[in-house]
Structures are given as C-alpha cells and as structure tokens.
Design a protein around this nucleic acid. Structure first.
Lengths: 347, 347
DNA sequence: GCGAGTCATGTTGACGTAAACATCGGAGGA
DNA sequence: TCCTCCGATGTTTACGTCAACATGACTCGC
C-alpha cells in the first residue's frame, strides 16, 4: 500500500526546512528572510528568496501563531441576517483590519431561540470557545447578543459597535442623538408644527437613542410630542406604519428611524394619494445608496459607516497591542442630506 | 524587574498541561476529553471538565491546526465594496461554514488600480500568501479578480461564485439565463410587442448571461431586438438610462438587470410623467428586500442567494475533505415574483 | 487458572516557526 | 600583535496539541 504515502503528505506544503535545504542555509536564516530582518547578507537573502519561489513556500500561520502567542486576526461577531448598516461597517472593518495586517474572522451568531444546537455540539462550533482571534468587534445590537449563544471568554479584547453607554467595553458608534436632532430640526426649521416619528424596535439602543433625541428636540422647541410608531427596521413595517400615518391629515412631517422603513412609508403615502413633500415631508436615517433614487429622492441623515468601522478596528488593535482600555465612547457625527422628500408645509 | 514576568506570561492562556496538572491526569487525557472521545472514564471526565472550567481552558486552535495540518477555516474573497447580492451570499456562506465547523476568513481584495501597495508590503498583508485557510470561495466577478492583486496559491481548493463556464474551478451560481428568460417571457406574455433591456456592466459575466438570454428569448419569439442600454448596477446608472427610455414612447416594457437599477429607472419614469405599469412595465432582478416596497412594488426575478452560498460551501468542503473536483457547474434556479410594476400594454 | 482481549490512561515525538543563545570570521583599536 | 566587538549564520528549544505506541488492570472463556 504505497498509495498511502501521497495521501499522508497531502496538503502539507513546503516548510522552512525545505527551503533551507535547497538554499543551503539553516532554517533560522530562512525565518529571518521571511520576516524581513536586516541582518542577512544580500547574496544569502537572494538565494533564499529564490529557493522560496522554487518550492512555492508559504509561511504556515498556525505555526507562527503558536510560536508567537498571537493570531493577527480579529473576530467580527455579526447577527445572522446582517442589516444594511452592518454590512457597510463590516466592509470597512475588513478593509481596515487587512491593511493593519490582521485577518478577519466572521463569526455569525445564531439566535438562541431559533436554533437548538446544544451542548457539545455548539461548543465545537463556537469559534470563540477556541482561541483563534486576538480580539473581537461586536457588530450586533446588545439585546440580540443577550439572546444569543455566545459567551465572551474574559481577557479577550472587545470593541462594541453600539449605542449603549453602560457597557464594560470600549464603544464606537454613530452619534445617534446628533443625527436625530439634525433630522428633527430640519423639519421644524421648514415650518412644520411638529414632527412625527417612526422608530426602530424598542430593544435597539440605536433606535431608542434616536427616539429620545427626537423627543428632546421637540421639547426644546416647545412643540407637541405626537405618539410614537414603532417598526422593526424593515420596509414592510414602514409600510404598515405609513398606512396609519397617511390616514391622519394632521401629519405633515415624519422622521423615520431608517431609510428602509422610509421607503415603505413613502409607498403607503403614495397609495393614499398623499403627495410628498406637498402633503407630508419625510426624513430618513442612514443614507443608503438607494435613498437618492427613492420616489421622491429621500432627505436623510447620512451615517459614516466606513468611519465607524475604521475607528473600531483602531480601538481594538490598540487594545490588543497596548492593552489600552479607553472607555471613552467614540461617537461619529452624521450629516443631513437634503433631497426632495422635504418641504415647508402647505400654508 | 520582577514586573517583567507578568508581562511575559500575558496573553497566553492556560493550556492542556495546566488542566492536566490540576486534574491529576496526563495531557493526553485532557485532549481526549476536549475532543469528546468516549474512551475516558466518567469520573475522570468530570474531573477534567471541572479543571477546564476552573482555569478557563480554551483549546488553542493554532496548535491544533499545526498538529492536524488543517485550519478548519475557509477564506471568502470579496470585493471591497460588496454589492447587495454578495452580502446575502456571504451571509449564507458564513452560516453554512459555521455549522460545518469551519471558520470564515474574510479576505477583501483591493483593486490593483486604486491601491499602490507594493512588493513586500502587500505580501505581508495578503492573507492568502500565508497558509491560513483550507480553501476559498471567490465571491468576486472574475474580471475584477483579474485586476486585483491576489494570486491563488496552487493546490488550494477553490470554488467560484460566478457565471463563467470556462473556469478551471468548480462553479456555483444563480441560473442567470433561466431568470432572464422568465422575466422576458413574462413581459411578452402580457402582450408587449417587445422588451427593452437595461443590462449590467459589459465585463460582468452575470450581466452578459442575462443579456444573452433576454436576446435569445426575444428571437425565439420572433420579436424585434431593441438596442441595449448598459448600466453599472447602481441606481444612479438606472436613473440615467431611465431618462433615455422615458423619452421614447415606443418603450412599453423593460427588463432591468437588477433591482437597484430598476429603482433608478422607476424614478426617471416618474419624473417624466410616465405611469407604471400603465405606460411602461418594468421587471427587475434579485428581489432585494426593498423591491416589494418600491413605488410601484417591483415585479422581479428572485435569486436564492442563501442556496448559492450553501451550495458553494458544500462544494468547497467536499473538495477540501475528499479532494473531489466536480467541474459540473451548479446553477440555482430563480423564480418570478409578480407585483405591480407590470401589466398588459395600453391597447 | 491462564492467555487473549478490552479498556483507561500514560509517554513520546512531531507539526513549523522564531527567540535565545552559540559560533565563527573579520574589522578596528591599543 | 592581540583582544574586543560586530555581524552573519547555525543550533537548540519551546510553543500546545494529538496520533501512535506503551502500560497496566481487569474481564471473559475454556
């Protein structure tokens, strides 16, 4: 059974030893070349480099990680169905991490209520149970995390992208309050008597921040505070809420907690024959790509997801490398983008 | 300088040896428990488990990977700005991989034309240069990959999510041709004389498949083939194309190569006062969440991204584990979703 | 009652890398 | 001329895990 042999050596690439043998040097010298050390003779370096190319050498990151006690890898915990914003943030995180020389490990969490992976089973599959990353960025809303079956090993550096200030970890997020204020004030400045609000799910910290800030702004300006509608971030829930709002002639301005719900709301308004912005003005939140092409193009609050992603990676890496904990939350400012869904109320 | 000591042992968690010492067994027994082997006495197992808990043991995946010559990790190569569909596919890939016990490594590629990472610099950061994954799923359109600075080490199992049949790797993708046919026939069946087409970028294989199939369908039915408009998948480009189309009264039916462009097209049509579906019918492609709430709700071709993701992971894992290469491309069928953007032409 | 078989457990070594230390030849200073 | 220092290179070892083999206790069948 000599056929066994190739099978055995399968998927085990050339190692330093192979390169060393070919180049006629010691493994250590190969290591030095691979790591770009300067204390290697020019001629030797070239010889080693040539040998590497010849055998197709690639450093084995497992051995490296074992040796160094570091993985140069960060985990990103995301909820199974990544929402629009998370996707953009994730993108930025991946880019930032990569250019800092860190790999990115995607760790999807399954909602505990929906899966029934139990005991040993889930343990094997929970990548965090295994030491394989140097730190993690949590991209899920905290309340979802609570329900999920991840528990964070302690001692692992963590950065949370969320809006809950009462967290034991460093936090990076969009400045929800500032954004909501921007939206509300824009509508008020246009001359609307007050502003309705379609909020996100009650358990979301981001949603409640936006809601609180909207209410505060109204109160600061001495405007009446209308009852709040609540959606679940989806266009469908925006549509449902929109049907209620469309029926009420008092409603002339709505601040919707995200663009997707705003889309649904727009549709409901159209169906009821209410013109936008003639009869009612609408402001969204996020500035997703498509918002500029809604009908009408949506005035909205632009979030800088890329910035959030970048900042969270920076924070995580400095925590990993320096052990720094700066519990000072990072709030990334938003920007009002005025398009065609807002106008002064009909006089 | 005794302060050095804690620094030294920092970030090096407890190992099997620590657990073994505490439980009064050998490291091997700890290993057996950790791997759920059955040849361990009940009492011993409990003792070990308790010890693990006490010291907070987590298996070191680097050591494990080194030992086994496998990483239990797959890489997913994505383009920097992940498009809508890719995001959904990525999600499915992550879920499928996780539940097969594989970790997911996100590998963003930077377009070569835009970054100027050179030489040693990029080598250090290209995660594929380092052996750290057992295989990769390529989620980028092939033409983008060509321009990018990734080169695949050979011997690495690869699955491509794309529509190019002339590939040296296994392929999984949506059945673009079937989808485009569905869309075109729907419009024709409604009674339209012919169907215009707003396609995706010329270099995209998916786009050209859809285009070819649209044209073929028209020819099969003996309909005239109108000139093709080309966009870049974005709503903005859909809007531009829409302005042209809206000006032409002959246009009564348009098949748009994705939902985002369809959104822009819808907007352009509204601006020109053309009613949908009264004056012109529109069919999209993708069935993104929001499509149901466009104005009017969009008739579109639903892609099953989750299925594509799952199938590609399956294919990759079987390639990794069994070394199977089945170059038989996998095509996932689509489905026509009829909503309110299509109707018979005005008689 | 004794060899064969079974099962829990222990010991050894190797996976690929890189830090720490060792070696060696030559440059420079007295 | 001899000693020191430095830079290039080699040797040893440990990182944590687990397969392979070794050991020893105990059971079973005849």
């Amino acid at each position: 059974m000599t056929a066994e042999e190739p099978l055995l050596r399968r998927r085990r690439g050339p190692s330093m030893a192979d390169v060393a043998r070919l180049a006629g040097v010691s493994g250590q010298t190969v290591s030095r070349v691979a790591n770009g050390r300067h204390n290697v003779d020019e001629a030797t370096r070239d010889r080693v480099l040539a040998a590497m190319r010849e055998v197709g050498y690639r450093p084995n990151s497992a051995a490296r990680a074992l040796r160094n006690g570091q993985f140069r890898s960060i985990g990103v915990i995301v909820f199974e169905l990544s929402s629009f914003g998370n996707t953009r943030t994730l993108d930025a995180i991946a880019t930032a991490a990569t250019s800092s020389g860190y790999a990115v490990n995607l760790i999807p969490v399954l909602n505990a209520t929906q899966g029934t992976l139990s005991g040993a089973f889930d343990r094997a599959f929970n990548r965090l149970g295994e030491q394989a990353v140097d730190g993690v960025v949590i991209l899920i809303e905290a309340h979802q995390l609570d329900e999920a079956e991840v528990q964070l090993p302690d001692g692992l550096p963590v950065v949370v992208v969320d809006s809950n200030a009462d967290f034991d970890y460093p936090i990076v997020d969009t400045d929800q309050a500032q954004g909501a204020r921007l939206a509300t004030e824009h509508l008020l400045d246009l001359g609307h008597r007050t502003v309705w609000h379609l909020g996100g799910p009650a358990k979301s910290f981001a949603a409640s921040r936006r809601l609180r800030s909207w209410r505060q702004t109204l109160m600061d300006r001495g405007c009446p505070v209308p009852p709040v509608l609540t959606g679940d971030w989806s266009a469908g829930s925006g549509y449902e809420a929109g049907r209620e709002l469309a029926a009420d002639p008092d409603v002339t301005a709505v601040f919707v907690a995200n663009d997707q719900m705003a889309l649904g709301l727009l549709r409901a308004l159209h169906e009821h024959g209410r013109s936008i912005p003639g009869d009612v003005s609408v402001v969204g939140f996020d500035d997703m790509e498509e918002a500029a092409h809604f009908w009408p193009p949506l005035t909205t609050i632009r979030q800088f997801f890329a910035e959030v992603g970048r900042r969270s990676v920076d924070a995580l890496i400095s925590e990993i490398q320096a052990g720094e904990h700066h519990h000072q939350p990072v709030a990334v400012a938003t920007e009002l983008v005025i398009r065609e869904s807002t106008a002064p109320p009909r006089s």
